[in-house]
């Protein structure tokens, strides 16, 4: 097992390469879902404000 992690002495090159691969792709994957959640939250509070305004003043657009 330790031979596997040693990568024939090239561990300091092989494992960072794999780490970069996974870190960059995970960041790429997570980013839009965070953005989506934030956008939906903003939209919801905008809708709530609109609903409240309409309640207060039904004739206004």
């Amino acid at each position: 097992m330790s031979a596997f992690f040693a990568m024939g002495g090239y561990a300091i090159y092989v494992w960072p390469a794999y780490a970069v691969f996974f870190i960059v792709l995970i960041a790429d994957y997570i980013n839009p879902s965070l953005r989506r959640r934030r956008n939906l939250r903003e939209l919801r509070s905008r809708m709530a404000r609109q609903a409240a305004r309409q309640q207060r003043n039904p004739s206004a657009p």
Binding site: L40, R44, S45, R49, A52, R56
Partner: peptide
């Protein structure tokens, strides 16, 4: 975001907390 289908999604997704928070604020 102005269209109806998005508003429906936003409404369904929200555990109504944001909506009630907005209402309370108003």
């Amino acid at each position: 975001s102005g269209k109806d289908w998005v508003r429906q999604i936003a409404g369904a997704h929200g555990s109504a907390d944001a909506v009630s928070a907005g209402r309370a604020e108003a």
